[in-house]
């Protein structure tokens, strides 16, 4: 079993490795009012490029940061120097928002040689490791997309799953949003969850220091949420960012094959014709 995360120690020993590319994927909820791009410019891991999930996304939709076409994805990442044959290490400064999603995106596009920095920028800095503000000018590198649609679910597949019940759905929104006891932060969405789905908030998967919890703790959490690790699984959340944290946790538990419902609640909850449980 290959763990999808690498430690700050691991990375510190390999900062000079010629085949490793560092990618800052920091993303904040709109309400937080922070500018991750500006923060990246001010302080990033040496050589790290910035990956903007809102920009490298499908533009022909009302849904936020949806997976782009393979052509758009490869055009964007090649400009970032993220191409065939490189080992990518993604990180962020917001508890796996959105390094986990970018980890998932690259794997959907067929690039498996990618890992997430456990603890991200916060842990790196807390340990007194180097960051800099030197502008990064990557050399373009060809990226061959090899789409893996086993890792993605769309609305119709989620609808079909309501009757087939072939896949268990893990919803990583807060318990209050899951049960529908609070209103959704995005306007116009119904409250509640996809019938039959299980709730395990993404925040529960992460330690106070911002690292992913260990396998034993994660196993217990998934069990307590009623998630059967022997079943086919799909993760879902508000807009496909925190769901990827659960996908990352499941990969740590030896389940790298978990799909993600890209439209998530922003899609499901905005439609008049989808069943909603409360």
């Amino acid at each position: 079993m290959t763990d999808p995360l690498v430690s700050t120690d691991w990375l510190a020993e390999r900062l000079e490795a010629p085949d490793i590319r560092l990618v800052d994927c920091t993303w904040f909820m709109p309400a937080e009012g922070r500018d991750p791009k500006a923060e990246h410019t001010a302080a990033h891991l040496p050589g790290a490029v910035f990956f903007d999930i809102d920009e490298i996304s499908e533009s022909d939709t009302d849904l936020p940061h949806m997976l782009p076409s393979p052509a758009k994805f490869s055009a964007r990442v090649r400009k970032l120097g993220l191409g065939d044959g490189v080992r990518i290490v993604v990180y962020d400064n917001n508890r796996f928002y959105a390094s986990a999603r970018v980890w998932w995106m690259f794997r959907v596009m067929g690039h498996e040689d990618i890992a997430v920095l456990d603890g991200g920028l916060a842990k790196w800095r807390a340990e007194g490791r180097p960051v800099d503000d030197v502008p990064v000018r990557p050399t373009e590198r060809h990226f061959t997309p090899r789409l893996n649609n086993f890792l993605v679910r769309d609305l119709e597949q989620m609808r079909a799953n309501l009757t087939s019940r072939r896949e268990q759905v893990v919803d990583t929104r807060s318990a209050a949003r899951f049960t529908g006891s609070v209103a959704e932060p995005r306007e116009g969405l119904r409250a509640g969850h996809i019938p039959g789905s299980r709730n395990l908030p993404a925040s529960d998967l992460v330690t106070a220091e911002g690292t992913l919890k260990d396998a034993q703790a994660l196993t217990a959490l998934f069990a307590a949420a009623g998630v059967d690790l022997d079943q086919k699984l799909t993760t879902s959340c508000g807009s496909g960012v925190s769901a990827a944290v659960a996908s990352l946790a499941l990969a740590r538990l030896g389940r790298p094959d978990v799909a993600l419902y890209d439209g998530s609640w922003t899609e499901w909850g905005s439609r008049p014709d989808t069943p909603v449980a409360r």
């Binding site: 067929g110 090899r146 893996n148 649609n149 597949q157």
Partner: peptide, 9 residues
């Protein structure tokens, strides 16, 4: 295999 991944389940 590539095609299976692309087409999905």
């Amino acid at each position: 295999v590539r095609l299976a991944r692309e087409l999905g389940p």
